[in-house]
Nucleic acid binder design. Structure first.
Length: 515
RNA sequence: CGGGGAUUGGCGCAGUUGGUAGCGCGCUUGUUUUGGGAGCAAGAGGCCGUGAGUUCGAAUCUCGCAUCCCCGACCA
């Protein structure tokens, strides 16, 4: 696309000097020819990642059939390939949540408006983006209903009804569901009006154990993103301005996308007694005293898919981490009508299926080269090519998506080779992403340095006075740079002053532009 | 919500001063092919985003609306 525009410009210039109709017609023909040639260079037929990241992103998620637009503004259809990816992510995280004693359950999507309005900060934060049900048929409802933007209120309401004794604590519930937040700017997976997520809600008898749970959930995310999605994240505390509406403390998980922008991948909140007081979540302690409980909540969404796309992707399209890839190994038969080719391909498939890998054979009538490009665009970690020449030598060609390299492997060694390779790819992807993040994270002392570094596409760690005024001033003067998280390990030392106001610094925080 | 751009077979696009639509890719059938996007031959496929208006006549002109993209504002 990009090159087409350039070609057009060239021809426009020519045309202004020589405007005869016949010339413009011949030029149009050459434009078409040029277009065909240049588009072949963009193997996956998508925009260049570095030149135009936003266009690259939407091209990629649409062309790889992860999703499509829904008919209503801001909505998205998750297509089978995208949903298979989501299911793998969800199933892995679900096991981890269960190992942390979260029990799955399901609460209604419709929430009485009075519930949301019970917690002042909560309603103030969410009101502008609530979808509201006011009628059934033509009859107005006595009380309008909100489509859940999150479920603290309705779960709080129900737990208040169930909870009696301290012996029932901690109580930890999780649900996988959809929520609606009517955002003004939307992009597939990154921010959609409706999205899928999990939300964990936990209740504790005291502040200390609730705070510990909020932190443990945060570390759980850090480990999950690192080990399963190969995404190195930065964890820490959110500022007052950025914290969840109704939370005492919000911890966040931030990941660096390929263009240097930050993506909030999940949050864990210590809610203190705000919701327990709003919803009368009380229990009787061992001294027969009724006490308000302390609660936490934690959530992450289909945005994880956006993070995978923009952390690992390249100009050929997706690069999916083996642990969650819908297809881990794609087998491409070459000259598949020749005797023995499909047999060998099927033998390889069976061997790998026995090891419980997700493996498929592309038996379509397309040319091998077309299949190579297709599966590279779709981000399949490993491709095995097998043709008559290989069969003669009892071998096959194994291609790895992350490094774009190909090796010859003996057929009888394929199990071991693929097992090792999938593990290697997972680790290499994490290592590469970590290197990028570390290279592009810079510590600065002054506002000038901060601006320069952020504009170069970096995460910037800077000392800050922790006041909202400075935070907003920085945002206004820098075209949208915001605080992301204050990493726990970044300690303020004596003499550190706020990058904005010069007063003594209270925290060191990551500043970046965010999605 | 403000500014700009877009919407024409599945996809990408062309369509001149208004006269009822074309191209490339893809698709179907046949055939030869198959180691980095195959060739030939014959076909199918369009309420020109949507609703009004102007006109003898609208893909084309005017206005509204919807959706998408970019930049802001807003935003766990």
């Amino acid at each position: 696309m990009k090159t087409t525009i350039i070609v057009d410009k060239k021809n426009d210039k020519k045309n202004t000097k020589d405007e005869s109709k016949s010339n413009s017609k011949t030029n149009k023909k050459t434009v078409l020819k040029d277009k065909k040639n240049t588009e072949k260079k963009f193997v996956a037929d998508i925009a260049s990642l570095l030149e135009n990241t936003p266009k690259w992103y939407t091209d990629t998620v649409l062309k790889t059939e992860l999703c499509d637009y829904g008919p209503v503004k801001g909505t998205m259809v998750i297509r089978p390939y995208g949903f298979a990816l989501w299911e793998n992510i969800r199933n892995s995280l679900d096991k981890i949540l269960k190992s942390r004693d979260y029990q799955n359950s399901y609460f209604p999507m419709l929430i009485p408006s009075s519930f949301i309005e019970k917690e002042k900060e909560h309603v103030a934060g969410f009101a502008p983006e609530l979808a509201t049900v006011t009628h059934v048929g033509t009859e107005p409802l006595a009380e309008k209903l909100y489509v859940r933007p999150t479920s603290e209120t309705i779960i709080g309401n129900m737990i208040a009804k169930w909870l009696q004794s301290y012996k029932e604590l901690p109580m930890k519930l999780n649900q996988w569901c959809n929520v609606i937040r009517w955002e003004k700017t939307t992009r597939p997976f990154l921010r959609t009006s409706e999205f899928l997520w999990h939300e964990g809600h936990a209740v504790f008898p005291d502040s200390k154990s609730a705070k510990k749970n909020a932190l443990d959930d945060l570390y759980m995310y850090e480990k999950f993103f690192r080990e399963y999605l190969a995404i190195p994240v930065i964890i820490g505390q959110k500022s007052e301005k950025e914290k969840f509406a109704g939370a005492e403390i919000t911890y966040g998980v931030e990941a660096m996308m390929k263009d240097g922008k930050s993506l909030q991948l999940g949050t864990s909140h210590y809610l203190g007694q705000k919701f327990s007081k709003a919803f009368e979540i009380k229990f009787q302690d061992d001294k027969k005293t009724a006490r308000y409980a302390y609660t936490t909540s934690v959530g992450t969404s289909t945005r994880m898919i956006a993070a995978i796309v923009m952390t690992h992707g390249d100009d050929r399209g997706l690069v999916l981490p083996p642990r969650v890839a819908p297809i881990q190994v794609i087998i491409v038969p070459v000259a598949q009508h020749k005797p023995g080719v499909l047999n060998t391909a099927n033998n390889i498939k069976r061997t790998l299926l026995n090891l419980h890998y997700r493996v498929d054979i592309d038996e379509s009538e397309n040319m091998p080269g077309w299949k190579f490009n297709q599966w590279e665009m779709k981000g399949v970690p490993v491709r095995i090519e097998v043709g008559p020449r290989d069969i003669e030598n009892n071998e096959c060609q194994v291609f790895r998506r992350d490094l774009l390299t190909k090796e010859t492997v003996k057929l009888n060694q394929i199990e071991q080779y693929v097992t090792n390779l999938l593990e290697k790819i997972q680790l290499t992807m994490l290592r590469k992403a970590t290197e990028v993040r570390d290279q592009r994270t810079e510590e600065v002392k002054t506002f000038t340095e901060l601006c320069k570094s952020v504009n170069a596409g970096n995460f910037v760690l800077a000392p800050w006075c922790n006041c909202t005024a400075c935070e907003e001033a920085i945002k206004n003067e820098t075209n949208g740079v915001s605080t992301r998280v204050a990493p726990f390990e970044a300690k303020v030392v004596k003499g550190d002053v706020c990058v904005k106001c010069g007063k003594p610094a209270k925290v060191k925080t990551i500043f970046a532009k965010a999605y």
